[in-house]
Write a protein that binds this DNA or RNA. Structure first.
Length: 595
RNA sequence: GGGGCCGUAGUUAAGUCGGUUAUAACGCUGGCCUGUCAAGCCAGAGGGCGCGGGUUCGAGUCCCGUCGGCCCCGCCA
């Protein structure tokens, strides 16, 4: 016989499925949730009922009459309400794998609140289902306990962040989402404005200028957990809209910001069950690049880079001597036991080096018979000895060399270090390694655009003692900037800001922004800076990245409820989409087909 | 803009050198079944291989194009 759907009526949940326990034995509970799994023995019927708190086993015995008959018709993901008595499971039928495994609910009354079509995929954790399918049916994907855990942790983390920042005097203030497009930085998402045909808002890449303005307004300490938008290509750790924990403080210098924010990070990790010891270690940018090749050093393992430029400056290998003679460097790592790498391994490593801009990769296997290497014949024995001792190399090791411009040699070898560390399982799976990277250069020179660009952003203050060199040696000027790096990933970055309009104008000029352009794009800031701006600085953390690392997720998509695909599309709603001619007309936009 | 990997039942995969009617598991449907928990047993339905061309007697298999997914370079102050 078939049963119709039941109304909720006056049934109300007495507890969450996952929270029923031995203390409830003997009491009557009413539970609501989804049919997770059904084991129908014809006589006895077992249902695992699921809600956000977990699973509990329901038992329908033939004595339950209509409830038992109705239970036959239940299928996966039907929504039901049940009332029954909690009782201990019979001896030897307990399930130690679930939290409620010691008890079960003997159902006396069943309401079938809604049915479900057969699912496109089974709701299991560690499912092998294609991500596209998961994203299309995100509402089903999000029923999986593992994803629910991640989003619930996200909630707890933001709650704790708010609590910590509020306790430390930070005031949460909302800033506009419809803002002014500025040059510099990432590509803006643009929003047309009906009331001003031909003019556009930009979605904020960050609330940077607004939070500085709030310091000028005297709020002293500000924070916001806020969406930011950047119209750039996506990556596993980059979405076009992402969330920052954004903060700014007045009357402080670097160490003050770093100290308060270490407390925030400690609180966040404590929330997730991880104790950490403060203070967090610090590396200067120069040290980070020197030892790890990257400005986001993964200090969980060794395999550090060594500079051998001086040793090989006069050797017989032209690639090395040319690099040494032209302001370049020769950097090397010593891979313990790496002589066992195959020719294919070395080809792979070379390809990686090349993909990061290196011209090639020099390698040396140190064997009992001496150097086995394409470059062995170019290098004298005394230089070989000097290299070996400089790198603390011994028989069985592999040496990898990158030569050329410092930026390329360091990047290539730094990436190789990560790859080799991964291949040899040198990187601990557990644990969190934090590093502050400080003393970034203020400026970099963009060869393509033939101008200086800000390494951090154009509002970053130079170090006081370096500012005199802005005109004579701009690249040597260090910034009052700092990044927080976790396990080799940048999770936050900030700086002390320029707080005088004179210095701000000077930096714009250095960046090749004319006085007229500066006035047009940033005039409001330059003007505001003239009205009593306190020294101030701040930071922004990438909430998605922190959560991805905290939850062991490969992509930040797993800690975002509704993420976008690599083409920046929403697989569920199919955004972005076309709009009507009328809508376009209203905002004075005409779409031109690309040829 | 570029490099790499991938696309076969609802899902995950197999499919040999191009060769009969495209396999399997899980899921689904029906039946049996009173202690299961990835329940079990029996039976069954379900795809023409992302899409469009081409080569061929014959194409998941080869070629060209295209769409989509993922990873990466560039880009991301």
């Amino acid at each position: 016989m078939a049963f119709d759907l039941d109304a909720l009526g006056d049934s109300r949940r007495s507890s969450y499925c996952g929270e029923v326990n031995e203390k409830n034995i003997g009491s009557i509970v009413t539970l609501m949730g989804w049919v997770h799994r059904r084991r129908d023995h014809g006589g006895l019927i077992f249902i695992d009922l699921r809600d956000r708190a977990g699973l509990v086993q329901l038992v329908f015995s033939p004595h339950a009459g209509q409830a038992h008959e109705k239970a036959h018709e239940l299928r996966s993901e039907f929504v039901i309400a049940v009332t029954g008595v909690v009782r201990p499971r019979p001896k030897d039928t307990e399930n130690p794998d679930i939290a409620t495994g010691a008890i079960e609910v003997e159902v006396s009354s069943l309401k079938r609140l809604n049915d479900s079509a057969p699912l496109p995929f089974v709701l299991e954790d560690d499912t092998g289902v294609a991500e596209m399918t998961r994203l299309k049916y995100r509402y089903l994907d999000l029923r999986r306990p593992s994803l629910q855990k991640k989003l619930i942790l996200r909630h707890q983390v933001t709650q704790e962040a708010r609590s910590y920042l509020s306790q430390n005097g930070f005031i949460e203030i909302e800033t506009p989402v419809l803002t002014k497009s500025t040059p510099e930085g990432a590509r803006d998402f643009l929003v047309p404005c009906r009331l001003s045909p031909g003019l556009f808002f930009a979605l904020p890449q960050s609330p940077q200028l607004f939070k500085q303005i709030l310091m000028i307004s005297g709020f002293d300490r500000y924070y916001q957990i806020v969406k930011c938008f950047r119209d750039e290509d996506l990556r596993a750790d980059r979405q076009p809209e992402f969330t920052q924990i954004d903060a700014e403080m007045s009357f402080v210098d670097r160490d003050d910001v770093m100290a308060v924010m270490e407390g925030l990070v400690e609180r966040i990790f404590k929330t997730a069950g991880h104790a950490m010891s403060l203070p967090i270690q610090r590396l200067t940018y120069a040290e980070a690049i020197g030892r790890f090749g990257l400005d986001s050093p993964d200090a969980r393992f060794g395999l550090e880079l060594k500079d051998v430029t001086a040793i090989v400056a006069q050797c017989g290998f032209k690639v090395f001597t040319d690099a040494a003679a032209s302001n370049g460097v020769v950097k090397a790592i010593c891979v313990k036991g790496g002589a066992a790498f195959s020719r294919k391994d070395l080809d792979d490593l070379t390809a990686i080096a090349v993909s990061f801009g290196a011209k090639g990769l020099a390698w040396v296997k140190i064997t009992a018979e001496g150097w086995q290497s394409p470059i062995a014949k170019f290098i004298d024995d005394d230089v070989k000895k000097a290299i070996e001792s400089g790198l603390e190399a011994s028989v069985g090791d592999l040496l990898l060399f990158a030569a050329g411009k410092p930026s390329i040699a360091n990047t290539a070898l730094g990436r190789l270090r990560l790859n080799v560390g991964g291949r040899l399982n040198l990187i601990p799976k557990q644990g969190f390694n934090f590093v502050w990277v400080t003393d970034f250069p203020l400026l970099d020179y963009d060869e393509a655009e033939k101008r200086y660009v800000a390494v951090h952003h154009p509002f970053t203050a130079p170090m006081y003692e370096d500012a005199d060199r802005l005109d004579i040696d701009p690249l040597s000027v260090r910034a009052k900037a700092y990044d927080l790096v976790l396990n080799g990933t940048e999770i936050g970055g900030g700086s002390i800001r320029i707080h005088t309009s004179g210095m701000q104008s000077r930096i714009f000029e250095k960046l090749g922004i004319s006085a007229i352009d500066a006035q047009d794009r940033f005039g409001f800031l330059l003007e505001a800076l003239q009205f009593g701006t306190p020294p101030h600085g701040g930071i922004a953390f990438g909430l998605d990245r922190i959560l991805a690392i905290l939850t062991g997720s490969d992509s930040i998509r797993d800690v975002i409820a509704f993420p976008k695909t690599q083409k920046a599309a929403d697989a569920m709603s199919d955004a972005p989409s076309t709009v009507s001619a009328k809508q376009l007309e209203e905002v004075s936009i005409r779409v031109v087909k690309k040829t």
